[in-house]
Nucleic acid binder design. Structure first.
Length: 566
RNA sequence: CGGGAUGUGGCGCAGCUUGGUGAGCGCGCGUGCCUUGGGAGCACGAGGUCGGGGGUUCAAAUCCCCCCAUCCCGACCA
């Protein structure tokens, strides 16, 4: 294709709204344009990349027996009322009403719809397992869309849903999907890591997330640097070895004045004690009422762990009024002594001999607080957030953390949806069972942005060849030079005839403009027809390495191939 | 949802404090000349409801009120 005929509106300046590099470069290089906050149009170059990503995904899904279907994005409320998620999903579900005032939503995911379909059409164990997938737009009314394609309100997802007669069947497909995902992201040229993920309060017993490692990622991955161990989990799921430290020496409970000292930092400085001796008391509001979480002063609560432990659907820190009503003191002075709220005690707190806590009185703390003596220790568990430096739960080496962009997740759903949507099958004996389900997602549009986050330099994008919009650009330096333009056309023709995808930059622009655009757009290979065409030579340049070789016109195709296949 | 900021031609911005002069600058765009190995130069030119609505005033991009949009920060670790 000719660049003069393509819609590639590159920008010299960075649009003010773009914060992260993938957003900036995709805008500048003419891949995307914003329509509304978190909603984008994909221009021709982006569409080509998306089609490549989709082709890779489709191939690997089909290889595992997936059958592609298409489902409505607009879905009736009844479907979501049946699963209970109409109420649970909250404001992130983009809802709308039709002219008859019937309620609908734009689907953020299709478990309900696909399970209803299978419930209606599949009856027998002979029809299982069944793997259905779709690649479509999905919607999430983010409270705050940001980072361009990384956190949009409309995004493209591949979701595969698997239906099995039992856990054993699910395990096989789960493993197959895990392997397929590994192949997919490898083929996309992404540096990624599969990590253990949390399965949430309801259902499910295994999940992995596929993280593209990038500083701009919103997710934190905790991993063990010991290669032979290989432990890796997302921050919410991550465990660490329990290494109890008995802080302090048992003594008499003592009330001290701590005027205005609310935070751990303030209290430790004021009293001259270590943060490890502080017992933070956090009050959470749940649908079953207030709950206190006790955690060491130098730790943070892992709310996912806490929520799972409690088995509640909603969990959020209580407001100042609620804290005051329950403890009699403003936030900052809460403590477990005499507190009439059920408490979850972190196992590290239980090990403290004599700690410091809020006194449930404004401007006062207790010293020498003994767990068990001064307050009941009944519900002990691990509710702390793992952090860098903690010992690995498997091998004990210090853990490290890295940021990542979640591009895929595989999840064992179990029977949660099949039960509520009544997806049952009959076994050989004619007995009815709920189907066992799995769900496996890939963020397609997000993967494109993640690829840019990971593959760029000061000049622009550096597409991995497997997902580049075109493999090569052929660039005549001087568009007035008949020899150069003729050579460029010949090489372009040879490259495309060889089955590669190329563009010919035939614009009547000065060379600098064409070079800059080529770097910005990130074609993996550039073929330059310049001064050496008089000797029958063209330059073949690798965007990634900067490698530049002069070859005879006839060898240009082979040189391009070598660079994109390496 | 809370806080902050911004909204002026396609993009990036100035002008607003202290109301009144032809609404300006750079880039981009069109035409012509010229130039051709890293976003050239000259000339001419097109293009703007100053986010929207209301108000104050003889007069509003500029002051006041409301709304909308966009971006950033935060969303409470006691």
């Amino acid at each position: 294709m000719r660049v003069s005929e393509l819609l590639i509106p590159t920008l010299r300046e960075v649009p003010a709204e773009a914060e992260v590099v993938s957003h900036q470069l995709l805008l500048r290089a003419g891949f995307i344009r914003k329509v509304a906050a978190g909603v984008y149009t994909y221009l021709p170059l982006a569409q080509r990349v998306l089609l490549k990503l989709v082709a890779i995904i489709r191939e690997e899904m089909n290889k595992e027996g997936g059958q592609e279907i298409m489902m409505p994005i607009v879905q009736p409320a009844e479907l979501w009322l049946r699963s209970g998620r109409w109420d649970v999903y909250g404001p992130e579900l983009l809802r709308l009403n039709d002219r008859h005032d019937r309620a609908f939503c734009l689907s953020p995911t299709h478990e309900e719809m696909v399970t209803a379909l299978v419930a209606a059409e599949v009856r027998s164990y002979k029809q299982l397992p069944l793997l259905l997938y779709q690649i479509q737009n999905k919607y999430r009314d983010e409270r705050r869309p940001r980072f361009g394609l990384l956190r949009g309100r409309e995004f493209i997802m591949k979701d595969l849903y698997s239906f099995h007669r039992d856990e054993k069947g699910l395990d096989i497909t789960y493993r197959a999907m895990y392997d397929a995902y590994t192949r997919i992201f490898t083929r996309m040229g992404l540096g990624f890591r599969a990590v253990e993920a949390d399965t949430g309060a309801i259902g499910g017993n295994a999940s992995h997330e596929f993280m593209v490692l990038a500083d701009s990622g919103e997710a934190v991955v905790v991993y063990c640097p010991n290669g032979s161990c290989g432990y890796a989990a997302n921050e919410e799921k991550a465990d660490s070895l329990f290494t109890p430290e008995t802080g302090g020496v048992e003594g008499r409970l003592e009330l001290v004045a701590t005027p205005g000292m609310r935070t751990v930092g303030e209290v430790t400085r004021f009293l001259g004690v270590g943060a490890k001796q502080l017992i933070k008391t956090l009050l959470y509001q749940t649908e079953r009422g207030l709950v206190a979480a006790l955690i060491r002063g130098d730790r943070e609560v892992n709310e996912v762990k806490l929520q799972n432990h409690l088995g509640v659907l909603s969990l959020e820190l209580a407001g100042a009024e609620a804290v005051e009503a329950a403890t009699g003191a403003p936030p900052g002075f809460s403590g477990p002594v005499g507190l009439n709220v059920p408490a979850v005690v972190d196992r590290e707190v239980a090990a403290i001999e004599a700690g410091v806590t809020g006194a449930n009185k404004a401007d006062a703390h207790y010293l020498n607080v003994c767990p068990g003596r001064d307050f009941p220790v009944e519900d002990v568990t691990d509710i702390r957030l793992a952090a860098a430096g903690d010992p690995c739960p498997r091998c004990g080496q210090p853990l490290e953390t890295v940021r990542g962009i979640e591009v895929g997740q595989v999840f064992k759903l179990g029977e949660k949806y099949s039960r509520v949507m009544e997806a049952f099958y009959l076994d050989e004996q004619g007995t009815k069972h709920p189907m066992v389900m799995g769900t496996y997602g890939i963020g397609v549009s997000r993967s494109m942005a993640a690829a840019v986050e990971q593959n760029h330099d000061a000049d622009g994008i550096i597409w991995p060849p497997s997902i580049a919009p075109f493999h090569a650009v052929v660039l005549p330096v001087n568009d007035q030079d008949a020899e150069q333009t003729a050579a460029a056309r010949r090489v372009y023709g040879a490259i495309t005839a060889a089955g590669l995808e190329a563009v010919l930059d035939d614009r009547p622009e000065r060379p600098g403009v064409k070079f800059k655009d080529a770097d910005l757009i990130g074609y993996p290979v550039r073929v330059t027809a310049g001064r050496h065409t008089t000797e029958g030579l063209v330059e073949v340049h690798c965007r990634e390495t900067g490698e530049n070789v002069l070859v005879g016109e006839g060898e240009a195709v082979a040189a391009v191939k070598r660079l994109i296949e390496k």
